[in-house]
Amino acid sequence: MNITTLKNWFANYKESSLSGRYIHGDHIAPLLDLLSAKIEIDQIGVSENNASIHLIKIGTGPKKLLFWSQMHGNESTSTKAIFDLLNLLTDSKNYITNEILKECTLFIIPILSPDGAKAYTRLNHNKVDLNRDAQELTQKESKVLHHLIKQIKPDYAFNLHGQRTIFSAGETNKSATVSFLSPAGDIERTVTMSRKIAMEIIARINTVLQECIPGQVGRYDDGFNINCIGDTLEYNRIPTILFEAGHYANDYDREITREYIFYSLITAIHYIAKNKITGQGYKDYFLIPENRKCFYDVIIRDVVLDGKSVDIAVQYTEELIENYVKFVPKIVKIEDLRKFYGHREIIGKKRTIRNEIVTVEIVPEIEMLKFYLDSELFSIELTKR
């Protein structure tokens, strides 16, 4: 399976009805209806606001793989990739479908936090972070996942998330487009056999991704927190792989990143299906650079403010406005930013910001950050509706 094959599959199986950042239960309901004619789909619980939580089951193999997406409702990239994957796995004419489904049974929760997804927030209806509720299990969504884990006893767990645009792959000017983590199961971050198995799978994924996004794969921090679901699973010695869908240049809708998540899912599942994974290949995991926070969305460099030469960092905040995710610019830092990078950089050449003001202006269908360097107007165009 090479990159050309993966590209062709993504082009053929991409679920065209899902796009952008705002994905919730109403978007996937028609897809679940269509898939229910081919595979097993059940409602396994409800959220704190009584929204349905579904489980998709596909395959008949002895290796049990559990996936859940949108534990944080505003992290939707992997949900799109899950449905791309399902389009592939329900095509019986594709050779890889039969290879995977003969060896594996996949259990998939496409949206664990339907309330958070609808509100486009990290938190659930009760303002609880479900990824900090793995021990106390105070929320219905947490209990649904906990009971499912106890019921199926997965051999592998896939915890699917998204990360902010601030992350770089190491201390470099390369964005961490996709990041991975084999979570720790104790404060000492012991490299157990179950961690080694997860690390070997991640190392295999990284080998594939380096062919298309070299230097843009990161390794997430493995600081231990037993309240997190991944850490709890590793504590119980279940090999767990955390995915973090990150930023690719000019891809704020995460449609390019979606493709690389699709590649990663296929690579991992096929590797599990075709191999007895021992963990012997775990060391290459540590060749992946750790994530660093080296990026801002925009850096305006070398401008004069209050008589001083400074750089200005602008970060977008994501706001749900009339069912669209809008990227609203906020000034987050004014200082010497030579050690940081901007996804977009504007060179001021020591010109003065007029009136010492950076403002946001709303115009029909477009949001812009507008500012003046001396008499020259600069506009940073944001997301069109």
Rank of each mutant, 00 (worst) to 15 (best):
I380L: 10
A119P: 05
L160Q: 04
A169D: 09
I269P: 08
S52N: 15
I269S: 03
F83S: 01
F243C: 06
S69M: 07
S19K: 15
S16G: 10
I334H: 08
F327M: 08
S264K: 01
T121Y: 11
A29F: 06
S309R: 14
S113N: 15
P289S: 10
T77I: 04
I197F: 08
L123F: 09
H27R: 12
T190A: 08
V332N: 11
E319A: 13
V178L: 13
D129C: 05
Y13G: 01
K174E: 10
C212I: 15
E367I: 15
V208D: 05
V298N: 07
I28V: 08
T60L: 13
I380V: 12
G59P: 05
G342T: 09
E365S: 11
T383A: 14
L369S: 08
A268P: 04
K118I: 08
C228R: 07
G279N: 13
D251I: 09
K333S: 14
V358A: 07
L145N: 00
F83W: 06
L86N: 10
I272R: 00
D336E: 07
T177H: 01
L373Q: 04
K384M: 12
I39T: 06
N131C: 05
I229E: 05
S16T: 10
S47L: 03
Q151M: 11
L373P: 00
S379M: 11
K283D: 15
M368N: 14
E103R: 06
F295S: 00
S16K: 11
D133R: 06
T232W: 15
G246H: 00
G170T: 03
E290N: 14
P183R: 05
I100P: 00
Y341G: 01
T90M: 03
G61I: 06
T267V: 09
R237P: 01
N2K: 12
V310L: 13
E171K: 14
K274I: 15
G45V: 00
E171D: 13
S36H: 13
S175G: 15
R237N: 15
D26G: 12
D231C: 04
L337H: 05
S379Y: 13
H343R: 11
G348Q: 01
Y120A: 05
A273N: 02
K63E: 01
R338I: 15
T79M: 02
I241L: 07
V304T: 07
F243M: 02
P30W: 04
